[in-house]
């Protein structure tokens, strides 16, 4: 079981944490919402919470709660640029279908 970052994503995360001034790492997860059932959570993490699994990838700590891990196990987080837009992308092998806008998904 693992969740990983690409090198590009890791570099960005490190930069953002430096400019934020604090932060232990990144929290990844899912919450049940949206038109296709689930949405990704991508947050700065200041501390581990009870039941968290902690991974380390490319020098960045990743916190995932046990419930979410079932849905995003094996995910690789990438940083991508599409036209002027840039941001993080979940490459999640469990994902079966996304809604039209791509903001929520089903497994």
């Amino acid at each position: 079981m693992a969740v990983t970052l690409t090198e590009r994503a890791a570099q960005r995360v490190k930069d953002f944490i430096v400019s934020r001034g604090s932060g232990e790492g990144l929290r990844l997860g899912v919450k049940t919402t949206g038109c296709s059932g689930m949405a990704y959570v991508l947050e700065f993490a200041d501390a581990a919470e009870e039941g968290d699994e902690v991974f380390e990838s490319q020098g960045v700590k990743i916190f995932v709660d046990a419930k979410s891990l079932v849905y995003i196990d094996g995910t690789e987080l990438d940083f991508a640029k599409e036209g002027l837009n840039e941001g993080f992308k979940f490459n999640n092998p469990n994902e079966k279908d996304t809604c039209g806008c791509g903001e929520s998904f089903t497994v």
């Binding site: 947050e43 993080f88 992308k89 791509g102």
Partner: peptide, 11 residues
């Protein structure tokens, strides 16, 4: 899929 940004904890 959409490109995401990192939010503050709980946000």
């Amino acid at each position: 899929m959409a490109l995401l940004q990192i939010s503050e904890p709980g946000q």
